[in-house]
């Protein structure tokens, strides 16, 4: 029988190809051709492979004839008298595999466990700034409606240069000279996944309360971001936020159409 037409072989080929794609092509192949990428976490690969396996099974069992020929080798191996040797090997191999996987799961390892850290935790409705309560919900940047924008940006620039550059970098890409020492690394403001996703009040909260102010779901908060409320004034923080958005070219997230258009 032609091996290439054998459904179970086709299924195996698809699975191996999918694994190679997820593990090696995305993780190591793409950087070779200049696309920024990184090895895919094991949990994600597991998830992807589960979906592919389900897809393969759906395909081969959707048609009666195909399902029969898919199952034929399995049935043959389990029943035909002349397949005794492969059958015996399978009977040994399957428990050994299960044992190996169990061993892998329970053996002691030195790596820290995988952690679930929400990168954008929910902000509290209200925070205190040096003891003074501030309602975050619906809070707009007060400097956007007062004073001269040039002055705000100039102030923000000087504050950013003095306080933020060491970690977030002079190009705002999170590549400051301290950055490699930190895990998690400082936020990359040039990424479309950070500033445009957030309202200014959210950014304000993150600057004011820093890493120590992260809620539980944002933990383990080994974030090195200081709580700036003790160092900067409110208007300075707001000016820095304006500067951040102005410099990166992003607009803050808003929830009202009218305001969205105003920007």
């Amino acid at each position: 029988m032609n091996l290439r037409r054998q459904p179970i072989v086709q299924a195996a080929v698809v699975l191996v190809a999918a694994y190679v794609l997820f593990e090696y092509v995305i993780g190591y192949g793409l950087p070779l051709v200049g696309v920024s990428s990184a090895p895919v976490p094991q949990t994600v690969i597991l998830q992807y492979m589960a979906i592919v396996i389900v897809g393969v099974l759906v395909y081969f069992s959707a048609d009666e004839a195909r399902w029969k020929s898919f199952m034929q080798p399995v049935r043959d191996t389990l029943t035909l008298p002349d397949r005794r040797v492969p059958r015996g090997l399978l009977m040994v191999a399957i428990p050994v595999m299960a044992g190996w996987m169990t061993y892998q799961n329970v053996r002691l390892s030195f790596g820290a466990p995988a952690t679930l850290r929400s990168i954008h935790p929910a902000p509290p409705g209200e925070i205190t700034f040096r003891g003074e309560p501030i309602t975050l919900t619906g809070l707009e940047n007060p400097l956007r409606s007062s004073g001269s924008m040039e002055e705000h940006i100039a102030l923000g620039r000087s504050i950013y240069t003095v306080n933020c550059v060491p970690c977030h970098g002079d190009r705002m890409d999170g590549e400051g000279h301290f950055a490699p020492a930190f895990n998690p690394v400082p936020a990359d403001f040039t990424s479309g996944g950070v500033l445009p996703q957030l309202t200014e009040s959210f950014v304000f909260w993150r600057i004011v309360k820093g890493g120590p102010g992260l809620p539980t779901e944002g933990t383990p908060w080994d974030s090195a971001m200081p709580a700036w409320e003790n160092i900067l004034e409110q208007h300075e923080i707001w000016a820095t936020i304006i500067y951040l958005y102005e410099q990166t070219g992003f607009s803050p997230r808003t929830w009202h159409e009218a305001e969205g258009e105003a920007h």
């Binding site: 090895p39 976490p41 094991q42 994600v44 790596g111 820290a112 952690t115 929400s118 895990n183 998690p184």
Partner: peptide
């Protein structure tokens, strides 16, 4: 946000 070990992160 992916579940990942330290090295992967």
């Amino acid at each position: 946000t992916m579940i990942a070990s330290r090295d992967e992160i």
